[in-house]
């Protein structure tokens, strides 16, 4: 066991601070910007400001700010986990980081094949971003994944990747893959467009439904406790006893389990769609032909 130098510890503390500060900043923004209102309401993300744009005003909402803060937090989490890593490391977090990297690499190669080995960082990034975004609701913040704009952006990114890999064998081959059989071409095009839409709606619908059900349950329990304990005098009559703790049990499923499961499924579908759309054999044949032509 080697001693940590003072400089090492200082950098560690800086990383931990930078992990926590974005979350605290989001909580601060939420506390400052939330308008005063009576009771529980279900509403979308708070709008912090509007930037005038030619076509439509650009809204800077809580979801966008929170997702940026999650990104900063994850960046410093990664820096913290790999701080001072080298061959024969002696810290526990280095081992955890190595396990995570190995798991993602084996998952990527297992699901996508050897050709897509370089996809592991991308898949890990999507997994971490989605999981931590969903877990933001544990801090009482608006989870960015329950806004369709954020998840829609990720889905469009994945769609661009899918199309890029389908077009690797040339645009003619890409167009041919739709017309097989020819009469089915319109349906194939619709199902191609439906891919990102269904990915975005699946993720956002799951997280949003969880938060809506949580709010409905909290409201209902508040009314119920008012009915049961309403006769008690003074403060005891007003305090919603049933609202303490019971919604948290539901939140374990809807916020933690469902959010993590959706992150896994989003990453899994990304892998399956990207590797499934890519005609590997055809691509290798073309490559061989090109090489032969170049030799002649």
């Amino acid at each position: 066991m080697r001693e940590k130098s003072r400089r090492f510890i200082a950098v560690d503390i800086f990383y931990i601070l930078m992990m926590a500060l974005p979350i605290l900043f989001s909580i601060f923004l939420k506390v400052v910007m939330t308008p005063v209102k009576e009771g529980i309401v279900i509403s979308g993300a708070l709008i912090f400001m509007e930037v005038p744009m030619p076509v439509q005003n650009l809204l800077i909402t809580e979801a966008q700010v929170n997702s940026l803060m999650v990104m900063i937090s994850i960046l410093f989490l990664c820096l913290y986990m790999t701080h001072g890593i080298k061959n024969g490391s002696w810290l526990k977090r280095h081992t955890i980081a190595e396990i995570l990297v190995e798991k993602t690499q084996s998952m990527t190669t297992g699901n996508m094949g050897e050709y897509f080995k370089g996809f592991a960082p991308f898949i890990a990034a999507i997994l971490a971003l989605s999981a931590f975004s969903s877990l933001m609701s544990l801090f009482g913040l608006y989870p960015p994944t329950s806004d369709v704009n954020i998840v829609g952006g990720w889905a469009i990114l994945v769609f661009v990747l899918i199309t890029h890999y389908k077009m690797k064998c040339g645009i003619v081959q890409y167009a041919k893959s739709f017309a097989n059989p020819v009469l089915m071409a319109p349906l194939n095009i619709i199902s191609e467009v439906a891919t990102p839409v269904s990915m975005a709606f699946r993720h956002y619908g799951n997280v949003l439904s969880g938060s809506v059900i949580g709010v409905l349950l909290a409201t209902g329990l508040g009314g119920l406790s008012n009915m049961i304990f309403g006769a008690l005098p003074g403060f005891l009559g007003d305090f919603p006893f049933l609202r303490v703790g019971i919604p948290a049990i539901l939140s374990i499923y809807f916020d933690v389990f469902s959010g993590l499961l959706q992150a896994y499924i989003f990453a899994m579908l990304t892998m399956l769609y990207v590797s499934g759309g890519f005609p590997l054999e055809l691509y290798e044949q073309r490559k061989l032909k090109k090489r032969a032509r170049a030799k002649i």
């Binding site: 709606f201 699946r202 619908g205 799951n206 499961l261 499924i265 579908l269």
Partner: peptide, 11 residues
Amino acid sequence: AIAETTGLYAL
């Protein structure tokens, strides 16, 4: 999760 999609569209 994939079978849930139609239900989520309705939601």
